[in-house]
C-alpha cells in the first residue's frame, strides 16, 4: 500500500467504518441507559431537582477546594489535558473543516501556532497523567488495561497530529494517514470503554445533581 493509497483508505472506507462503529456503539450505550430508566421517587421533594441537576452538570467541572488540595496534580493535569484536547480538536482549522463536512457546522479557528503550543502542553499533561497513574497508589490500584488503552488511544491522535503538522517521521501523506487512522482507532475504541464518559458525564451529573437537589443540597 503506497502512502497515497493509505491516505485514501483512511479518508474513505476506514473513516466510514470508524464512524459507523462509533455512532452505533455510542447510540446503543446511551439509549440503553435511558431505557433502563429509574423509578419515580415517591419521597416528598424539598425542592424541584431540575435546576440543581443542571447546575451540577456545569458546576461539577469545578473541583471543591478539599479535593484540589488533596490531589492538585490530578486536578491541574486533568484540566490542562481536557481543555487542551478540546482546543486542538475543535479549533484547529483543518479539524473545523472536518466537522463542517460531516455536521455542516463551522466556527472560527484559532491560530495554528497556538494550537501547536497547546498540543505540546496537552501531550506533556498526558505524560504527567500517566506517570501519576503509574505511581499514585490509588490510581495504580484502580487502573486496568482499559485505562492504559484509553490513555494510549487518546495520546496517539495528539502525537501523530503534532508529527504530521510538523511533517516529521514519515512523508506527510503517511503521517496524515496515521493521524487520521489514530483518530479512527479512538472512535472505534470509544463506545466500548470509559471514553463514553464524554457523553454519560452529563447524564451522571444530572442524576446526581437532581437526586441531591430534590433533597435540598446542591451537589
Amino acid at each position: 500500500m503506497t502512502p497515497v493509497e493509505f491516505l485514501a483508505w483512511v479518508r474513505g472506507p476506514m473513516f466510514q467504518i470508524a464512524v459507523a462503529i462509533f455512532a452505533l456503539g455510542v447510540a446503543i450505550r446511551i439509549v440503553e441507559i435511558f431505557v433502563l430508566g429509574r423509578k419515580q421517587d415517591l419521597s416528598e421533594p424539598r425542592r424541584d431537582g431540575v435546576v440543581p441537576g443542571i447546575k451540577t452538570i456545569f458546576g461539577r467541572s469545578i473541583p471543591d477546594t478539599g479535593t484540589f488540595k488533596r490531589s492538585p496534580l490530578n486536578v491541574v493535569a486533568g484540566y490542562i489535558f481536557h481543555i487542551g484536547l478540546f482546543t486542538t480538536i475543535l479549533f484547529f482549522v483543518p479539524h473545523i473543516e472536518l466537522f463542517h463536512s460531516v455536521l455542516g457546522l463551522q466556527w472560527p479557528g484559532l491560530p495554528t501556532p497556538f494550537i501547536d503550543a497547546v498540543t505540546v502542553v496537552t501531550i506533556f499533561a498526558m505524560v504527567v497523567i500517566l506517570i501519576n497513574r503509574l505511581r499514585n497508589p490509588v490510581l495504580k490500584f484502580l487502573s486496568t488495561f482499559e485505562d492504559y488503552l484509553c490513555w494510549l488511544v487518546t495520546l496517539l491522535p495528539l502525537l501523530t497530529g503534532y508529527l504530521a503538522f510538523h511533517r516529521m517521521l514519515f512523508p506527510y501523506q503517511t503521517m496524515l494517514g496515521i493521524h487520521i487512522l489514530s483518530v479512527e482507532i479512538l472512535l472505534i475504541v470509544f463506545p466500548f470503554t470509559k471514553l463514553m464518559h464524554f457523553f454519560t458525564v452529563f447524564l451522571a451529573r444530572w442524576y446526581n445533581g437532581s437526586a441531591f437537589g430534590r433533597r435540598g443540597v446542591q451537589s
Binding site: I33, S71, S143, D147, K194, H197, V201, L203, A204, Y207
Partner: peptide
C-alpha cells in the same frame, strides 16, 4: 437494583481516583 442512574455512573467512571 441497577437503574438508569447507576448505568450512567458506571459508564462514566474514568478511574481518576479522586
Amino acid at each position: 437494583q441497577i437503574d438508569g442512574p447507576i448505568a450512567s455512573y458506571l459508564s462514566s467512571c474514568v478511574h481518576c481516583g479522586m
